[in-house]
Amino acid sequence: MSNTRSFATPAALAVLLATSSIGLAADYETAMVEVTAVGDAAVVGATVVPYKEVVVSAMVPGQIRFLAGHEGDRFKANTLLVQIDDDDLQAKRRAASAAVMAARSAIDQANVQYSRELVSPRINRSMSQPTGFGVPSMFDSFFTRPFSNAMGLSNPWVERYADLQGQVSGLNQANSSYLQARAALDEIDTKIRDARLFTPFDGVITAKMVEVGDNAQPGQPLMRFAYVDFLRLQAEVPVRLVASLRKGQFLPARLDVGSGILVDARVSQIYPIADQARHTVTVKLDLPQGVPGGPGMYAEIRIPDHTTDARSLPTVPRKSLVQRGSLFGVYVLEDGRPSLKMVRVGGDAGEGRVSVLSGLKGGEQVIVNPSSDLGSHNARQTAGD
């Protein structure tokens, strides 16, 4: 009885591995890492700023009675931040409320007088007043008024219209007085509301300029309140460099934290007008969420300078970049399998490509539009092998 064993030849193993690699590589859309002549970059200083910040200023004069916290304290939106003493305003409000009630009473009285004139005209009342045992009044009714009307010296309908119009005018004046009193009350209510200042959004106090007991005047800054969950870089970029920037472009930046932290910042806003004195344009860039540091820190941005001589740098399609925290990387095919390599991204290289300052040499195959689960899928596949 003999045992038969079969062995795979080295050539067969090579063919098998090549076939497997080709099958893996065929599952991805790839692009070549090209070495392209790219212009040099200029370093521009920048400052870390909050994503948005407001200055909380006093709207009414008075003494500071309440402050919600100190620098660094975090609050939700619509939280009471500052309260100014409003005792004087409350007293004025009570007086304004009394004026509104008096105006309302005047309207009621004017309505009564108008209704009385409409139902019982004054011209009739004056003729019916009994004087001198009624003889003078009777004489006026039968002789004086008819004779005056016949001679054209008086007109009872015109007199009635004048009396009625007088009551209408009194009613309109009462309504006007009421509206003025209501406006004065609303104005005081607005000032009372302005004595209480609330947070406009979620954020932290970045600066406090007053203390409880200080006297505040309208327009005086009291606090700075900022949203710092996202940070930005703000830089004054020379006009000659602005032409190479566009919204959404990624630029390498260095934050002055420790020995320096390198991140990629995205251009979010380019001011349309340059500063006439310094000949610079304000540019804001979004930083990745979670970067260390805070507002006020110094940073440096590398901006492509097309006015200088070009140098050769590897370039990759922008769609091949993946972000891991504050860093960027690309999936490189090695033996047909994707391998994540972290890279430092430079400036825009045109045609949808970006330059790479470090991490690649050129000639590698990178995966375009990698799926979010590519790394975990590759790890499971490697473990299964």
Rank of each mutant, 00 (worst) to 15 (best):
E159P: 01
S169P: 08
Q180F: 04
N172G: 09
N175Y: 06
Q180S: 13
V158Y: 08
A181N: 06
A162E: 15
Q165H: 12
S176G: 12
Q165T: 09
Q180L: 10
W157T: 05
D163C: 04
A181R: 03
R182S: 06
Q165E: 14
N172I: 08
Q180I: 05
S176A: 15
A162I: 10
Q165W: 07
D163H: 04
L164V: 06
L179M: 12
Q173Y: 07
S177E: 07
S169Y: 11
A183N: 11
D186K: 07
Y178Q: 12
N175G: 09
S169I: 11
G166I: 02
A183P: 04
L171G: 10
N175I: 06
W157M: 14
L164N: 11
L164A: 12
L179R: 15
N172T: 09
A181P: 02
A184F: 01
Q180W: 04
S177Y: 03
Q165N: 15
Q167Y: 00
Q165G: 06
N175W: 00
R160W: 08
D163L: 04
S169R: 10
G166E: 01
L171E: 05
S176I: 09
D163G: 10
Q165S: 14
V158E: 04
Y161P: 00
A183H: 03
R182N: 08
A174F: 03
L185I: 01
N175V: 06
A184S: 06
V158L: 13
L179Q: 15
G170C: 02
V168I: 13
S169H: 09
L171V: 00
S177K: 11
L179C: 02
Q167K: 13
S177L: 09
R160H: 10
V168N: 02
G170N: 14
Q173P: 08
D163K: 00
S177N: 14
Y178D: 09
Q173T: 11
A174I: 01
A162W: 02
A174E: 04
L164F: 15
L179H: 11
A183V: 05
S177W: 01
L179F: 13
V158G: 01
Y178W: 11
A174C: 03
Q167R: 15
L179E: 11
A181K: 03
A162G: 09
A162S: 12
Q167C: 09
Q173K: 10
L179K: 13
E159C: 01
S177G: 15
R182H: 06
R160D: 07
Q167H: 06
A162Y: 08
A183G: 08
E159W: 00
L164Y: 15
R182C: 05
D163Y: 04
G170V: 07
L164H: 15
L179N: 12
Q167M: 11
A184N: 04
Y161W: 09
E159I: 04
S177V: 00
L179I: 10
L179S: 14
Q167I: 00
L179A: 15
S177I: 00
L185F: 09
Y161F: 07
Q173C: 00
A184E: 03
A184C: 02
A162H: 08
V168Y: 06
S169A: 12
N172L: 14
L185H: 07
Q167E: 14
Q167V: 05
N175E: 15
S169F: 12
G166D: 01
A183D: 05
N175R: 12
A174D: 03
R160A: 05
A183T: 04
L185T: 04
N172K: 12
A174Y: 01
R182I: 06
L171S: 10
Y178M: 12
Y178S: 11
A162P: 08
